[in-house]
């Protein structure tokens, strides 16, 4: 299995992870991607990417004011300057002794652990475990564009499931979202609108 390394952990709580990577990284994960950290051999933490932050500094601001820019200046900024992209990740579950749990990890990973992008096989394995319990970790977040992250995730996961011949996974996932948001009509409407915009079911 080809593993795609995203970056290294900068800080973490049991609910959220912040990972830094170089601006030049071409394999940046999209919002909603399932990612993984392996703090120990038999312990993996899963998370969903919910935001990417590209830091600036004085030089970037100055260069941005210049009309025509030399390509080498852009390349230098992306390759050589230590201005990382911050990837923010919601913890959505963990795997211990071969068993996947849709619970918050018992302990956060330590600094500089590597963040990996999950393969289609891993996405299918994680999302098929249990009964969509990990979705509640997304839905309870206050400072996250929940509906956008959810729609992006379901689309990515649906694609992985379809590769395995499971065409109805996304329908079941949306049913679960409806159940979880049954008492919050406004939130449910926003989520359904985002899912409609993502054209998963078209």
């Amino acid at each position: 299995m080809n593993q795609i390394q995203i970056g290294r952990l900068l800080s973490a709580t049991t609910r959220q992870l912040v990972v830094g990577c170089q601006v030049s990284q071409i394999d940046l994960p999209a919002i909603g991607s399932l990612v993984r950290i392996n703090p120990q051999v038999d312990y993996a933490i899963y998370g969903l990417v919910y935001d990417l932050y590209i830091a600036d500094d004085g030089l970037v601001r100055q260069l941005a004011t210049v009309g025509e820019m030399d390509e080498k200046v852009i390349a230098d900024h992306r390759l050589n300057r230590s201005v990382p992209i911050e990837i923010r990740v919601l913890s959505v579950g963990y795997k211990m002794a071969g068993q996947i749990y849709h619970l918050l990890p018992p302990k956060p990973p330590l600094g500089l652990e590597i963040l990996w992008l999950c393969s289609d096989e891993e996405i299918v394995e994680f999302t098929n475990s249990g009964r969509y319990g990990y979705l509640r970790h997304i839905l309870r977040e206050q400072d996250v564009a929940v509906e956008e992250v959810l729609a992006a995730h379901i689309k990515l996961a649906d694609n992985a499931h379809r590769q395995k011949g499971e065409a109805d996974w996304s329908h079941k996932a949306v049913q679960e979202v409806i159940v979880l948001l049954r008492d919050d009509y406004a939130a449910l409407t926003r989520v359904l609108q985002s899912l409609a915009d993502s054209q998963i079911f078209s």
Binding site: L59, Q62, L63, T65, V66, M69, D70, V73, D76, N80, R81
Partner: peptide, 18 residues
Amino acid sequence: CQIMGKIAYPFALHRAHE
């Protein structure tokens, strides 16, 4: 110097300073 826009100073020197 033109690379740096209005704060004209050789870009390469500024990077070396950084």
